[in-house]
């Protein structure tokens, strides 16, 4: 019997030691990614890259760090500012390294988990693969990816953070991208006055704004589809064309000429100027374009041909509604701040 007692004692200690190697989770207060209940299914594959505190903290540090650029001067945050819903406040085209400029307007970064394509022409179809684009663009951050990884690997703080987030001994491309995606995917905007109205607070919108909402649903929603306010598709909205071929740049299909991705209109009040190259300074200018300034073209969306015929009052009411999509909590949430 004594042998059995010794055996059971051994087993007991083995079992106990197994449960003692599990730490009590110190990050229990970090809730991770939470999808609003009224949003459609996410597109991002969270099984491969779920959001956890270590990855989020690392992604945020990287987002605001000029180390990703050739000379350390440009970070993602340089052109993606929280107060502008992570667009570039009051910039048509952003200035990157050495004050160089490109040809496209810095878009907002919000609700990325629901997006299927990234960049105005949708050239990138996975959020993880987006950052390498500005990082290596000679007019943005002008750095080479192996060099970025080399710098991060030489930085003991980053090595520790990467080890904690991904349990890898050195920083590689996949984990760099996953960290940035964890930060970006947390940028969920769904608490505007419009959302309050949707949730049942009838006084969240003024009467004028409610009229605007109705007009919007009739005239704009087929592309700027609520609640994300984008259909994630590409359209030619009848803007005067330039050498920027839009979607056709990546698909090499004539049917895609001059088509650009429908931007989400959430926080649109804060993300001026508008269109893929920032040519429209105000919402009023945009509405005027949709009302009566649609240019002809073979790929112009049939719903826009001839203009939407909105009166000046209707345009003003739609603008009033669009301003209710401003989510102040999102724009000031210190979890996302530099």
């Amino acid at each position: 019997m004594r042998a059995f007692k010794i055996l059971f004692a051994c087993l007991f200690f083995i079992v106990l030691s197994q449960s003692c190697t599990k730490e009590i989770n110190p990050e229990a207060s970090f809730k991770g990614f939470e999808a609003p209940l009224n949003f459609p299914l996410v597109h991002y594959n969270f099984t491969i890259n779920p959001v956890n505190k270590a990855g989020f903290d690392l992604g945020k540090k990287l987002f605001y760090d000029g180390i990703l650029s050739r000379d350390g001067s440009i970070s993602c945050g340089s052109c993606h500012q929280q107060a502008a819903a992570f667009a570039h406040f009051d910039h048509t085209i952003s200035h990157g390294i050495d004050d160089k400029i490109g040809n496209r307007n810095a878009p907002v970064i919000q609700n990325t988990a629901w997006q299927q394509y990234f960049a105005w022409d949708g050239g990138i179809f996975h959020l993880d693969d987006f950052p390498i684009n500005p990082i290596t663009n000679p007019v943005e951050m002008d750095e080479k990816m192996p060099q970025v990884l080399s710098k991060l690997n030489a930085n003991s703080t980053y090595r520790t953070m990467f080890k904690k987030a991904f349990n890898n001994d050195s920083v590689d491309y996949a984990s760099l991208t996953m960290a940035l995606s964890q930060f970006m995917n947390m940028l969920v905007s769904n608490q505007s006055r419009y959302d309050e109205y949707l949730a049942g607070n009838v006084s969240a919108l003024s009467e004028n704004e409610k009229v605007g909402l109705n007009l919007f649903m009739n005239k704009c929603n087929s592309c700027h589809t609520a609640p994300l306010f984008t259909d994630n598709k590409f359209h030619n909205t009848g803007l005067a064309t330039s050498s920027d071929l839009g979607r056709a740049t990546v698909t090499v299909q004539d049917s895609d000429l001059y088509k650009f991705k429908t931007p989400s209109l959430r926080n649109v009040e804060k993300s001026y100027p508008y269109t893929h190259n920032g040519r429209s300074a105000t919402l009023e200018a945009v509405l005027k374009h949709y009302a009566s300034e649609i240019n002809p073209g073979t790929t112009v969306d049939s719903r826009l041909v001839g203009g939407l015929g909105l009166t000046a009052l209707e345009q003003q009411q739609i603008v009033a509604f669009l301003k209710t999509l401003t989510d102040t909590r999102f724009l000031t949430d210190t979890r996302f701040s530099e």
Partner: peptide
């Protein structure tokens, strides 16, 4: 593959 990749068109 750093120099054999289109970042603008994954």
């Amino acid at each position: 593959a750093a120099d054999m990749y289109w970042t603008w068109n994954t």
